[in-house]
């Protein structure tokens, strides 16, 4: 009695196997015979070619080969032991999917964990550089965070056919980010004297109010402000800090433009237009030739 359900299941499985085997065979027979349904089977393939009648077309040969291979496979699958294995494999699919999903999710959670750790480190950077002095340290901190935590993603080794193109694109993005940071710092530096001048002006006006020396001519305030501002700028522009920031900006601009040009050359290579690189080579040759001609002309003149 206990074995009854198993026997039923086995019987059902046998029926399923037979049915599946029959369906496969019918399908293959259909595709094998389909081209032959036409009176002239080769005509179906020779519709757009001028091949002589009766000669099998290359496409037809491929079709025949394909159906034969498929037929052989079906015959093989139709063997009871193979069908059984196939059904067992079908049973294994959910398990396989489960394992893959598990791996993917684990990888994702690991990556997320790394990112969270990096975020925590960013917080640590802030602490280390003390954001109390926000103005002075912000740019340094931002640059540091970028260089230590994000920049490396642009330098993950690229692989495959497009690796060089991808590398150049990544480098251009990286250099752009560095340039933007440097430029922001440079622009900020020019704002600092404005802020300082405003503070000095506030103090001065306060003193004037206390001394009762308030002027009714607003131009006097402007003259005072512009003089203070000029003084602050002069101090800033002569400072090594400014020169350093300016140099950093120039350097990052040059690096970004070079990287961007390299990337652009890849794009322009496929277009029917000469690139600057090609033109520069030509200009150099032209320059050298011209120089040589001038030298020779001069020598000829001297000989006369």
């Amino acid at each position: 009695m206990e074995q009854q359900p198993d026997q039923n299941q086995e019987k059902e499985a046998m029926d399923m196997t037979k049915m599946f085997s029959m369906w496969l065979k019918a399908t293959i027979n259909f595709w094998e015979n389909m081209p032959r349904m036409k009176p002239d089977e080769s005509a179906m393939f020779n519709l757009f070619t001028n091949q002589p009648k009766g000669t099998p077309h290359q496409a037809q040969q491929t079709w025949d080969r394909g159906t034969k291979i498929a037929g052989a496979l079906v015959s093989m699958l139709s063997e009871p032991e193979n069908l059984d294995a196939m059904f067992k494999a079908t049973d294994a699919v959910p398990e396989f999917i489960m394992k893959i999903s598990q791996q993917v999710w684990e990888g994702y959670f690991e990556a997320q964990k790394n990112w969270t750790e990096r975020a925590v480190r960013i917080g640590k950077h802030e602490k280390a550089y003390n954001f109390d002095d926000l103005d002075q340290e912000t740019f340094k901190t931002l640059r540091d965070i970028y260089e230590k935590e994000f920049q490396r993603y642009f330098y993950i080794p690229q692989i495959g056919l497009t690796r060089f193109y991808q590398e150049r694109a990544n480098t251009a993005i990286d250099k752009y980010n560095i340039f933007q940071t440097a430029l922001s710092e440079f622009i900020y530096m020019f704002y600092v004297p404005m802020e300082k001048s405003a503070m000095v002006m506030q103090e001065k006006i306060k003193d004037m109010v206390e001394k009762g020396e308030i002027s009714d001519n607003y131009k006097e305030y402007y003259s005072m402000w512009i003089k203070i501002l000029e003084g602050h700028y002069m101090k800033l522009l002569q400072s090594p800090e400014y020169t350093q920031v300016m140099n950093k900006t120039i350097h990052s601009l040059v690096a970004y433009r070079s990287a961007r040009d390299e990337m652009m050359y890849d794009i322009l290579k496929n277009l029917p237009i000469p690139t600057n690189r090609e033109m520069d080579e030509l200009y150099k040759e032209f320059y050298e030739l011209k120089k040589k001609v001038r030298e020779l002309s001069r020598k000829v003149e001297e000989q006369k």
Binding site: P240, T243, M246, N247, I250, L253, R257
Partner: peptide, 20 residues
Amino acid sequence: GLLHIWMKNTLAEEMGPTYG
């Protein structure tokens, strides 16, 4: 002169070849 300070301490000359 500021130009003297800047030119001595920066890599301004790098810009030429980059821009042509």
